[in-house]
């Protein structure tokens, strides 16, 4: 008994002292995310692809620009994947090391996807949240503008931009950025409308918090879940779009390359028995897309458990 009393007392003291750390909705979501196998596998895939893009270059025996004269002209016979001559993934049709090229292509593809999604997140969120929160005529005008922009076939615009301003990375970023935020702003606006009439927003308004602060402090944090999910699913879409453009021969320009460009080259030489030129870029392309889609699905389930 004495023992128990002492224990209870120390427990009571401890309870009185510690500030209990609350479990936020984010912590809950994290726990649900990590108990989802597919999502964890997706995350591992993404980690692998990211590590490959960041550090793969250090393992390459050849640079991405050097031509290997030993295999030039006999690529189909001698240029296959080999540990002996340092071409782990073989060489491309010109005799360049495909491993180094794939690292570079993965870097460019990831960069394109992330930049496109980032523009969508920043511009789409601010635009959508403003339209939704202000409401009325401002909202109507802003959203009609989005409707008009969405009605323009984006691939056409993208190709025009690339043709007019040259096939540079910047032009590609601008082109993808221009189209990527439209859908995001619609989603954010819809969510903002449903948040706007919640009592905690009214409480903030009643106490005199300014509109900008309400958007920043109350609306955006409550939208982050939706934004995170949509952004994760947007990255692979951006990568796909870029690859399609590259496949058409309009993407990034040599000596830069992307997974789409590599796949395009690999596909064109497939008939000559150099299947590895298609297989390796395609493998990383698929791993990246799988990773993002699994993580996106996992995030959606974790952040919105009501839907299940």
């Amino acid at each position: 008994m004495v023992h128990d009393t002492q224990r209870m007392q120390s427990l009571a003291e401890r309870m009185a002292e510690d500030e209990v750390a609350g479990r936020s909705l984010w912590a809950d979501a994290r726990r649900r995310f990590f108990s989802n196998k597919a999502a964890v596998i997706g995350l591992a895939l993404l980690a692998f692809v990211a590590a490959f893009a960041l550090f793969g270059g250090q393992f390459a025996q050849w640079s991405n620009e050097e031509l290997d004269y030993n295999v030039m002209g006999v690529v189909a016979q001698e240029g296959g994947p080999s540990l002996a001559n340092g071409h782990y993934f073989g060489v491309d049709e010109l005799g360049r090391d495909l491993f180094a090229r794939t690292v570079q292509g993965t870097q460019v593809s990831l960069l394109v996807g992330l930049v496109g999604a980032l523009v969508a997140v920043v511009v789409g969120t601010i635009y959508g949240a403003t339209a939704g929160y202000v409401g009325g005529r401002v909202d109507a005008a802003m959203m009609r503008a989005v409707d008009v922009l969405m009605a323009i076939p984006y691939m056409f615009v993208l190709i025009l931009i690339l043709v007019m301003y040259g096939r540079s990375m910047i032009a590609l970023f601008v082109g993808l950025g221009l189209i990527s935020w439209l859908e995001m702003s619609r989603i954010v606006r819809g969510q903002t409308l449903s948040l706007k009439n919640r009592e905690f927003i009214e409480a903030a308004r009643a106490t005199g918090v300014s509109g900008v602060t309400i958007i920043r402090r109350h609306i955006v944090p409550n939208l982050l879940g939706v934004i995170a999910v949509y952004a994760t699913l947007l990255v692979p879409l951006m990568i796909l779009t870029e690859s399609f453009i590259s496949f058409l021969g309009l993407g990034v320009q040599e000596p830069l390359t992307s997974l789409g460009a590599l796949i395009s080259q690999g596909a064109s030489t497939m008939a000559y028995g150099t299947i590895w030129q298609l297989a390796f870029p395609l493998l990383f392309f698929c791993l990246t897309l799988f990773g993002f889609f699994f993580v996106g699905d996992g995030l959606r389930d974790a952040l919105d458990p009501k839907d299940r």
């Binding site: 936020s24 909705l25 009592e199 905690f200 409480a203 944090p221 409550n222």
Partner: peptide
Amino acid sequence: LASLNPRMTL
């Protein structure tokens, strides 16, 4: 409950 922002601490 609805009058408190779910993402903010007390």
